[in-house]
């Protein structure tokens, strides 16, 4: 067993001081130690994006980040997107537009769309498709996810859909 390393990490606005194995993946820290199981693992090669979280404001695949690399960072997971019990507009969009079926890719997909819309508040269909191309969905064929992103973009720009 390797020696434990102290880290300090802020997750969904709450600060944690922890000691972790150097090889512990961020996604396992979130899921196993902090019990934030909304972030999923769908592959072991950083392809599927089910584990996507916001790391210091940008989307990151948490299966490809060691917990020790996130020392001093701020992480937002799917559980941290709501504000005062209100769904984030992207979450709302996924519900309104049937942007999910089995729900397994959904948390990572939602976080990727949040990141996309932070960067580009008014994306075209092609830009949305490119923006979520790091996330696999096997259920929806992506079309309703594109609509969910369009819905959220309109809401966040203050346009009623």
């Amino acid at each position: 067993m390797s020696d434990l390393v102290p880290i300090s990490i802020t997750v969904n606005g709450r600060r944690y001081e922890l000691e972790v194995e150097p090889r512990l993946l961020l996604v396992h820290l979130l899921r196993e130690k902090l019990l934030l199981t909304g972030t999923h693992v769908g592959c072991d090669t950083s392809q599927c994006g089910a584990c996507t979280v916001l790391l210091d404001g940008r989307s990151a695949k948490s299966c490809t980040v060691f917990a020790v690399q996130a020392d001093g960072s701020e992480v937002v997971t799917i559980e941290g997107l709501e504000r005062d019990g209100q769904l984030h507009p992207v979450q709302e969009g996924f519900w309104e537009e049937h942007g999910l079926q089995c729900g397994y890719c959904t948390p990572g997909m939602i976080v990727s769309v949040v990141d996309l819309l932070n960067e580009n508040p008014n994306p075209t269909e092609a830009e949305i498709r490119a923006g979520i191309s790091g996330n696999f969905c096997r259920c929806t064929g992506y079309q309703h996810i594109v609509k969910a992103a369009q819905y959220a973009a309109a809401r966040m720009r203050g346009v009623s859909s």
């Binding site: 199981t37 909304g38 559980e79």
Partner: peptide, 19 residues
């Protein structure tokens, strides 16, 4: 009709086997 399954899934509150 919007799906009744969705709130738990979009909020990261669903329970899969690994959870």
């Amino acid at each position: 009709v919007k799906r009744r399954e969705d709130p738990r899934l979009i909020r990261g509150r669903a329970t899969y086997v690994d959870d």
